[in-house]
Structures are given as C-alpha cells and as structure tokens.
Design a protein around this nucleic acid. Sequence first.
DNA 1: CAAGAAATTGAAAATGGTTTTCATAATCTA
DNA 2: TAGATTATGAAAACCATTTTCAATTTCTTG
Lengths: 142, 142
Amino acid sequence: MDRVKIFSDYIVQKGLKTTNQRMVILKTFLSSRSHYSTEELYLKLRKKHPKIGYATVHRTLKLLAESGVAIEQHFGDRHARFEPVRANRHHDHLVCVECGLIIEFEEPNIRELQLQVAAEHHFKINNHRHELYGLCSRCAAK
Amino acid sequence: MDRVKIFSDYIVQKGLKTTNQRMVILKTFLSSRSHYSTEELYLKLRKKHPKIGYATVHRTLKLLAESGVAIEQHFGDRHARFEPVRANRHHDHLVCVECGLIIEFEEPNIRELQLQVAAEHHFKINNHRHELYGLCSRCAAK
DNA sequence: CAAGAAATTGAAAATGGTTTTCATAATCTA
DNA sequence: TAGATTATGAAAACCATTTTCAATTTCTTG
C-alpha cells in the first residue's frame, strides 16, 4: 500500500488532523535518501518551507514511526535517524565511521540464525538491530 | 591477563595516576553483574563510598572503555551501558523490552556471515552491534 | 622524605539532542 | 460557518553527558 495512504489512514484512525506541514514533511522524507536525522530533514525542508519549525519536524517524524511509515534508528552518534519503510523490510547496516556512509544489506542466513538463537532462549523477537561499523573502501584507502 | 593489571598498565602508559576512586570503581564494576549504566554504578558505589562523585564514575567508565577493560553499549533506552570485557569477546545480546533482561549469546556462524558481507562491500570492520529485542519467556507468558 | 609539578576529584554549571509548553493558528465536525 | 479540537512554532524544559574550576591527591625528583 502507498505509504502516504498508510500515514493518512493512521491520522484519521487516531483522530488527528491532516496538515500541510505533515504532508510536506512526509513527502520530503519519502522522496530522498534514507537515514535522515531530525536536523538534516529540518534543514532540508527549511529551504523551501522556511516556516516549518524544528519541533514540527520532530513530532512528525515520531508520528511517522508510530504509523509504521518510518523506522527510528540509533547509530553510534548521538542523534536518532529515521528511515522510510520499504519492501525489503529486514535489512541491516554497514556504517563507515569515517565518512558516515551507510550501506544496507540483507542476508537471509543471518535472519535464520537469529530466529534460531531466539528460539533457543525462548525469546519472542519483535525487532532487532544489526550494524557493522568500520571503514568503507574509500576511507580505508586513505 | 588480569583486567586490573590491564587497567593499571594503561594508566601508567598514559601518564595518568592511580587513585583510590579509580580502583574502587574498577573493582565494583568488575565484580558485579554486567551492563551497568553510569547512574546504576554510581548509586551502587555510593552506599559504601558516599564521597565518590557522579563525574568521577562517569570519567572512570570512559577510561575503562579506553583502556579496553570495558565496552560501551547503547541499547534502546537513553543511557549508555558499560560491560566488562571477558573471555568470550564477541557476543551479541537478546534484550527483553518488558523486564530489561539481557542475555548474551555467541553464534560463530553469524560472525562468519558478517565477515562475508563486509568483504562483499569492501568494508573493514572494527566492531559491530547486534541485538535482538523482544520478550523473554517469562514476560511472553504473562 | 619533602616539595613542587601535574593529574584528579567533586560540585556545579554547560552542552546538546530531544521533548514539552503555551499562545496562536489551522483543521475538522456538526 | 461556528465551535471544538488538534497542530504549529518559538522558546523553555529536560536529562544524560560532559566540562569547568578550585581544592585535593598523586607521583616524581632533588
């Protein structure tokens, strides 16, 4: 289903309101590269929509996460990042600690092993975090 | 090698000083359950050593991490946690989102797959984070 | 062993990302 | 379209973390 619709439905279902700001934020969020921090998205939005406040961006990102359109991530640095939910729901990340490059990868065998481990410990897994930190080829070459 | 010695050596090598506070913090840190947050350790220490300040605990934990005796972790909640380094250096975590239970596990096959993925993307991995979040058997049963 | 240099400590203040407050504005219901 | 409710933006509050600074402790050197 279209992610805009998912969000709209969530808004209605919760008795919230559809505002210009929310739609602008959602579209900008969906249309660009992933892994936005609140500040990055705020700065980007400000160019075309100087009146949108930081708090609104922040609240909307939280709302996007709530509605299932975005996922909140916490990489090593201090700020949260938000990533649009896409078809390949389950992927993990390679993060370059030097330049900040983030590469997504999917490895079904890892998934399988995760489930196995969880079963061994009688855990019921809701979500997970799996990130590999290091140097990308470019930074390693320096 | 003994972890107290590793730390002492680090202190000397860096031209720092061996203080009572540092030794007390180190020993308490090593002698108890893992995964302390700064505040938890501070509160625990305060019972027997009421004069140790929060800042000192914080600085010492950072120092422990620097010296390789501790590893700084960031789980979902907002504060950092520190874990003593042990023999099974490479392990991952199962975290119960309900009661906070943390179980460590090791799965060599996952490690292998990680290396493989990194190689595919020409990444040089320094460290990683791998956590599975969900409900432990006890909480799932409720 | 004592004195001086240098590092450490603890309390309080600063920092910085995140979250909340509050008056005003916009949306939506009836 | 009015009235009720939610959203917005700016500023303030929050809170874990980090830094500052005067006083204290450690350690080196004479």
